[in-house]
């Protein structure tokens, strides 16, 4: 079974400006498959929190309905999410830009790893309780303040779909928004930092009781040192695969 925890916390800059968190995540476990969605609403877009919430929900609900999970279906899930956000904008007489958000979708089980991704943030996989591999790296625009969004007209061009057959047992999966990128990823080597992920996966895996880890993860993300490392909202979703059963569902 999958044990999953996810949290979104507002960044210090957003907090100071009296803005709420514009990051959203959702996840769902179907049998031995974990689906995770993380979306970062653009700080400059008025309704981006609505956009990110709608994108995550729609994508996960779409994946829960499909018969076969493959590159085509995760791509379709992204387009379903995009349609939902654009329709919401239109229904309210607003431009799509005002609902701008990124989207990272991850599907993982013992047989396949899929990721569909528009914008920054990223996802990693842990093999055999050891090696941490990047599943999807943040795709940045040309400039530091330029991000690709699900709502962009050229979304079809910026969508990055990854499909892998796991080379070892998949023991952990994580997806995160750009507020956590610097701790998660080594941009020089384009790899993930095991010193960040290994203790997190280990703690989640080795806790004997099947309790709720939300408050703990929230405290970790809000701890002064981590919070100050980036002014952005921070979302981190962690899943570890345990050799037993159960099913769960959560939308934030």
């Amino acid at each position: 079974m999958w044990r999953v925890v996810g949290e979104s916390v507002p960044g210090p800059a957003h907090f100071r400006a009296g803005m709420t968190c514009q990051d959203t995540f959702a996840w769902s476990v179907m049998g031995d498959t974990l689906c995770v969605a993380v979306s970062d609403g653009a700080g400059s877009a008025t309704f981006s929190a609505v956009g990110s919430l709608l994108a995550c929900r729609t994508a996960i609900e779409f994946l829960e309905q499909v018969e076969v999970l493959d590159s085509a279906s995760v791509t379709d899930a992204v387009w379903a999410a995009r349609r939902a956000v654009l329709q919401e904008a239109q229904a309210n007489g607003k431009s799509a830009r005002e609902f701008a958000c990124t989207l990272i979708l991850v599907v993982a089980n013992a047989r396949k790893l899929l990721c569909a991704h528009i914008g920054d943030g990223g996802a990693v996989v842990e093999y055999d309780k050891g090696e941490i591999q990047v599943l999807s790296f943040p795709r940045k625009g040309r400039y530091a303040n330029e991000t690709d969004f699900l709502t962009d007209e050229e979304a079809a061009r910026t969508l990055l779909v990854t499909s892998l057959t796991p080379k070892h047992a998949v023991t952990g999966v994580a997806a995160f928004s750009d507020g956590c990128e610097r701790q998660c990823l080594d941009f020089k080597t384009r790899s993930a930092f095991p010193r960040f992920f290994a203790p997190l996966f280990q703690h989640l895996r080795e806790s004997t009781e099947n309790r709720c880890f939300d408050a703990e993860l929230q405290a970790f993300l809000e701890a002064e040192r981590f919070a100050k490392a980036s002014d952005d909202d921070k979302t981190l979703v962690l899943g570890v695969y345990l050799e037993t059963k159960a099913s769960n569902h959560s939308v934030s």
Binding site: R195, L217, F220
Partner: peptide, 13 residues
């Protein structure tokens, strides 16, 4: 100790 064991990931100085 829980998630804060990732202290070196958060502060790699």
């Amino acid at each position: 100790m829980g998630f804060e064991k990732a202290e070196f990931g958060v502060n790699p100085e």
